[in-house]
Design a protein around this nucleic acid. Structure first.
Lengths: 148, 148
DNA sequence: AGTGAAATTGATAATTATTATCAATAATAC
DNA sequence: GTATTATTGATAATAATTATCAATTTCACT
């Protein structure tokens, strides 16, 4: 096991403990495999990959774990419309949002300090205590624009 | 039928026609009943209300119609997480977004020119042709903050 | 007004993602 | 090491949405 994986595992252990949860082999595997992937990963995709190294892992466990990781703040969940949930790495410091192309379905990640600040102003105007926000901009990406 | 309903019906007819769709009694009823309600309406709620005046109307028709109305731009759809879709009146001129309270589930509508402009800047930076956007801010509303 | 092509409806089945159930197993505090 | 408690894996249940399809309705065109 690599040093960085070891480091992640310690962090995982600490966070789970802090939340009164147990550190399990499955959770370790699921998180490490998830972190080895880039971009946006669905439960199904991750499950299929995990099965190669651990054929006995259960689908429900993968589903539950990703959901749990999202809840305790170590992975990010993105949902667009009725589509299935996708999970992505959590930026350590910056929240990011998404441009979604309605033609090809691809995501572009965006970060914007202006948006973070604007959000705070809007919330304080409404006497609203922000926990999080999700901005999805729908449109047509550069590639698809050029296609026509 | 009221004058305003008549007006809506003409608009509906025009928009349907423009989209190559037919004007039906059901679509008229569904839209008019929907417009007579305030706030955020689910398919189920609207279906139950419609059944009182038209017991033979089908659930699928209500579902399809709201979805269609959203597609052709005459009603707005809001989805939060895995919850069922809610539909709301479309603001004629202004897009609006939502603050969602994670405690009580209530929505607060917000409009922001700053956000509209910011969105445009972000999109143009990414060479992205905007169609629409949805911002949902999750947090705790004034009422629930004061409750504790 | 009548007609024919095409769209819509209503009932219901199918689909899909997610969540619940529960006995067996594993992790952790003591 | 043991008791307690959470988690796992398999699968069933749930819930929203979408597909199917025969019967009906709309509408463009005479």
């Amino acid at each position: 096991m690599s040093t960085s994986a070891n480091k992640f595992n310690k962090i995982l252990f600490t966070i789970l403990k802090r939340n009164g949860l147990k550190y399990t082999k499955q959770r370790e595997q699921i998180l490490n495999t998830f972190l080895s992937l880039k971009g946006h990963t669905s439960v199904d995709t991750l499950y299929e990959i995990l099965r190669k190294t651990n054929p006995s892992i259960g689908y429900a466990t993968v589903h539950r774990s990703l959901k749990l990781f999202n809840k305790i703040g170590i992975v990010e969940m993105v949902k667009v419309g009725n589509q299935k949930a996708l999970y992505e790495h959590k930026d350590k410091n910056r929240h990011h949002d998404h441009l979604v192309c309605v033609k090809c379905g691809n995501f572009t990640e965006i970060t914007s300090d202006e948006l973070e600040n604007l959000q705070k102003r809007i919330a304080s105007r409404n006497n609203f205590q922000i926990i999080d926000h999700k901005l999805i901009v729908y449109g047509i990406c550069r590639k698809c624009k050029n296609k026509r």
